[in-house]
Amino acid sequence: MQLLCTLTSPFARKVRMFAIEKGLGDVLHVVTANPLEDPAALLRVNPLAKIPALITAEGEPLYDSRVICAFLDSLAPAPRLIPDAGKQRWIVLRREALADGLMDAAVAIVFERRRPAPEQSTEWLDRWLAKIERALVAMEEEHRSDALVAARLDGIACAAALGYLAFRLPEIDWTATHPALANWWADVAQRPAVTQTAAP
């Protein structure tokens, strides 16, 4: 299987961590593709030119990160990283959506800051930052009420989000205001799935 992505994408990192935790790290071949250049190889797989995009062993294209993770989880009965049914399934999927939304806002900030300073929108930068701050509050509350599981989709998605903040937006000092989340991240950051997928 081929995963088209950049090594700095938090969504691609989520998929790569998921594959490792699932025991599929060795069969997922990473192919770097810059979506901003609309490479033909990526457009053949995903007409939206977004990453990550997966080419399955049968040659079928899959995107985005949520779909790819669900597909990877279906390839083997164990370990199950996404609950099949019941209340826990919806908790896990809600937490994934929360982490994905945080990453969306963080990526938007990163790209906006790359524009010439006079063209940057302070209003949108503030809106995206506010989304990140609200997501962190919710993530802390979620973790306190029912702990995130590092080797499950919710923990993997949240780890990808927190890792991206540390990588691209270190000025957001969330560890000082969200101690339970900070303690969890300190432990999770040492897992092989996290260390092996760190941005170069």
Rank of each mutant, 00 (worst) to 15 (best):
L48G: 04
E21I: 00
E37M: 08
A19C: 09
N46Q: 08
P35A: 02
V27M: 08
N34T: 08
P39F: 11
L28G: 00
P47Q: 14
L43C: 07
H29M: 10
L42C: 03
N34H: 15
N46Y: 02
E21R: 05
N34E: 15
F11S: 00
N46C: 01
R44A: 13
A41S: 14
L36C: 07
E37L: 13
P35C: 02
R44V: 04
A40Q: 15
P47L: 13
I20Q: 04
V45M: 13
V30I: 15
G25T: 07
P47G: 12
G23V: 04
A33M: 08
M17F: 05
F11I: 04
L43P: 03
N46G: 02
A19G: 00
A40S: 15
D26A: 12
G25F: 08
L28W: 07
A33R: 05
P47M: 09
H29P: 04
N46R: 02
E37N: 04
H29V: 11
P47W: 06
F11G: 01
V31L: 14
R13D: 01
K22S: 07
D26G: 07
G25R: 03
K14R: 15
E21N: 07
V31N: 03
L36M: 14
L42I: 01
R16D: 07
I20V: 08
M17K: 00
A19I: 04
R13I: 00
A41Q: 14
I20R: 03
R16V: 01
L43D: 05
P35S: 09
N34G: 09
V30T: 11
F18T: 07
K22P: 00
R44G: 13
A41T: 14
L43W: 05
K14H: 11
T32A: 11
M17Y: 07
L24C: 03
R16Y: 10
A12M: 10
A33C: 03
R13A: 00
F18R: 11
A40Y: 12
A40L: 15
E37G: 05
P39A: 05
A12W: 08
D26K: 12
